[in-house]
Structure formats: structure tokens, C-alpha cells
């Protein structure tokens, strides 16, 4: 979601692993380890100061990004997945993080803890995101 190409994805993954390793000493057990890991990963992805590449629409994923070499058993599902990725790609960086956490079944409280906003505001943001996704995806999800 935060990278355009395979190479960038590999770099980001490596950096997340490095940051988790380096920051592990600072983990005090005040939150769940998974919440802490999501924090570090999201901070690395959003504010990790990657080199900017001049592209017409910098934050947009290229078509190649959707070509993950996986074929889901159901071709219809595969198509819907592509549309879902493209729809999420139209959201802001913060919204992408919030919706990803929600799609992975994190509670509003956990999302609030990772992002740093109130659970109520997570709800407000998610409502807006759902409206937008619905608008974008409605024609493809009959």
C-alpha cells in the first residue's frame, strides 16, 4: 500500500525489520506486542523518509503493484481484490493505515492506540472511508 514497486517493498520490509530490532529495547510491555509492532511499521512506512521519486502521481500505486503473483481460487474474488487495492490506493496515507488495520480486524481502541487519535474519531474516519470506498467500489461489487 505504501510502495510502488517490488524493490521499494523489499526495502521497506527490510527497514521495518531493522527498526523493530533496534527499537525492541524500548518496548515496555505497556501495550500488546502486535500493537507496538504495527506502530513501528506504520511510522516507518509513513514517516520513514524514503527517497522521493519524481513521478506524475507520486502517491499512487502503479498497475504493477497489483500484480502480486498470487491467484486466489476464485477469479471473481481476484478481480475484486484488484479493485479493492485500487480503491484503497485513492485514500490518503493516514486513511490507508486506518482502513488496513480495520480490515485486519483490529478494534477501534487498538487503531486509536496505534494512530494516536480517539476511538470516536477512528469511527468518524472509518465512516468517511467506508463511504468513499463504497462510492468507488459499488459498480464493481454487484
Amino acid at each position: 500500500m505504501y510502495c510502488n514497486q517490488d524493490e521499494e517493498r523489499r526495502d521497506l520490509f527490510q527497514d521495518i525489520v531493522l527498526q523493530l530490532w533496534r527499537a525492541y529495547e524500548s518496548f515496555k510491555g505497556e501495550s500488546k506486542i502486535s500493537t507496538w509492532m504495527y506502530r513501528v511499521a506504520l511510522n516507518t512506512a509513513i514517516s520513514g523518509f524514503r527517497k522521493q521519486k519524481r513521478k506524475p502521481e507520486q502517491s499512487r500505486l502503479s498497475d504493477r503493484a497489483y500484480e502480486v503473483p498470487i491467484v486466489l481460487p476464485d477469479p471473481d474474488m481476484e478481480e475484486k481484490r484488484t479493485f479493492l487495492y485500487k480503491a484503497i490506493d485513492q485514500l490518503s496515507e493516514v486513511e490507508k493505515g486506518i482502513v488496513m488495520l480495520h480490515l485486519e480486524d483490529h478494534s477501534y481502541e487498538e487503531i486509536a492506540e496505534i494512530i494516536g487519535i480517539t476511538p470516536n474519531y477512528v469511527g468518524v474516519k472509518l465512516n468517511r472511508i467506508k463511504q468513499r470506498l463504497k462510492k468507488i467500489l459499488q459498480p464493481h461489487f454487484v
Binding site: 533496534r22 506502530r39 511510522n43 520513514g48 496505534i114
Partner: peptide
């Protein structure tokens, strides 16, 4: 000082 933060995203930003 711009190290990767382990605090929440808002504070880190």
C-alpha cells in the same frame, strides 16, 4: 533526532 519512533503515529509525525 529523526529516528523511527515507537510512539503512536500522530506523536511520531
Amino acid at each position: 533526532r529523526i529516528s523511527i519512533e515507537t510512539s503512536n503515529l500522530k506523536e511520531a509525525l
